[in-house]
Nucleic acid binder design. Sequence first.
DNA 1: CCGTATCCCAGATGATACTG
DNA 2: CAGTATCATCTGGGATACGG
Lengths: 122, 122
Amino acid sequence: MSVSLADLRGRDQALFSDGCPTRVVLDHVMGKWGVLVLLALSDGTQRWGVLRRSVAGISEKMLASTLKTLEGDGLVARTAYPEVPPRVEYALTDRGRDLMTRLIPLVEWVADNADDIVGGKA
Amino acid sequence: MSVSLADLRGRDQALFSDGCPTRVVLDHVMGKWGVLVLLALSDGTQRWGVLRRSVAGISEKMLASTLKTLEGDGLVARTAYPEVPPRVEYALTDRGRDLMTRLIPLVEWVADNADDIVGGKA
DNA sequence: CCGTATCCCAGATGATACTG
DNA sequence: CAGTATCATCTGGGATACGG
């Protein structure tokens, strides 16, 4: 395929040194829950409860943790409304939406190929 | 952005149910080392020793484990030559190369934005 | 040179209960 | 509703030593 991997190599011969920003962000985004939460938010603004149900299997702890990480990365924006009962909404930031233009094609590929891969058949 | 996320939703309202093939493959590919190893292999066929040095910080255990997983997923092909001393080469399969066409743009985005994100500045 | 086997730990994750 | 706190767990991951 020979993509512009050379561009990446230009910065770092050793595929991003241990602990460099690229690896950190990669871990946030590519982590078990990061992708799924981002995916859920690409539908648009979502409330906590909706996210929790949308991302099947996630615990409250991991949802909170994942959201906080992504918010810290400037990929997700949190908006709390001073109401009773509380209402909090999460949405992608501009940067988050930009990321999704790259992330969604990948997820689609995985979704298309996952059955073949796991099933063992090709 | 409103991408074709609807396509994905068509299969699974709950963003891929817990333990479904998509999530499994996603974890393999997106794991801490999966991306980096695949990236190293997108340069072309590589020997074990080269990979170990290329993916800075990876332990022998994780390299072996990651390669085995990716091989099991049909993304990486392993070729052992009956020589002394042993020589073993790893390369992307066709499916692996196909995956990289989606994965590399994402990694490039991350590399481009990582400094902003981690540094906190925008 | 190319791994595999073993031990061990930290952090990731899960379950549950509780608060604003 | 939207979390936080706490405790228990479990697996990823590192270090090391050894085998083919």
